[in-house]
């Protein structure tokens, strides 16, 4: 696993999108792979929650006939949690503060997901 390449992708995303506070890449069963988070954020918990979140969203997409799930976003009054499917085996979590420009994040994260996917499954 090329952790340096993964780290570089997470760093670029946080530098390029104002308001991104923390990032985690995890396996789809909720085991963290790499995380860049503040001290008060526990990557193991975030990964587990994100895996559950993505699982429910994926099932909803399937039952309703929305096709393959790409992402799901939690909107809170103080910020956001975006969870992206990275292939079928992994996921990426992006936390943002309330000033985050979500449109910008979704735009910037698309190529990041593709690159993270190819790093995880070379």
């Amino acid at each position: 696993m090329d952790y340096d390449a993964l780290g570089a992708e997470l760093r670029k995303l946080r530098e390029n999108v104002t308001g991104v506070t923390d990032t985690v890449v995890a396996a789809s069963d909720g085991i963290p792979i790499i995380a860049d988070v503040a001290k008060n954020v526990e990557p193991v918990h975030i990964s587990a929650l994100a895996a559950a979140d993505l699982g429910i969203a994926r099932q909803a997409a399937e039952v309703i006939g929305l096709g393959a799930l790409s992402q799901t976003v939690v909107f809170g009054s103080q910020g956001y949690m975006a969870v992206y499917a990275v292939g079928s085996m992994s996921l990426m979590v992006v936390l943002g503060d309330k000033g985050l420009n979500l449109g910008r994040l979704l735009h910037e994260s698309r190529p990041v997901i593709a690159r993270v996917g190819s790093i995880l499954t070379p």
């Binding site: 696993m1 952790y3 780290g7 997470l10 760093r11 946080r14 396996a27 085991i31 963290p32 792979i33 790499i34 995380a35 860049d36 988070v37 990557p43 085996m89 992994s90 995880l120 499954t121």
Partner: peptide, 12 residues
């Protein structure tokens, strides 16, 4: 500013 922790997962 960027502090990475990793869990040593070798493969998916």
């Amino acid at each position: 500013s960027f502090s990475f922790s990793q869990w040593g997962l070798g493969s998916l």
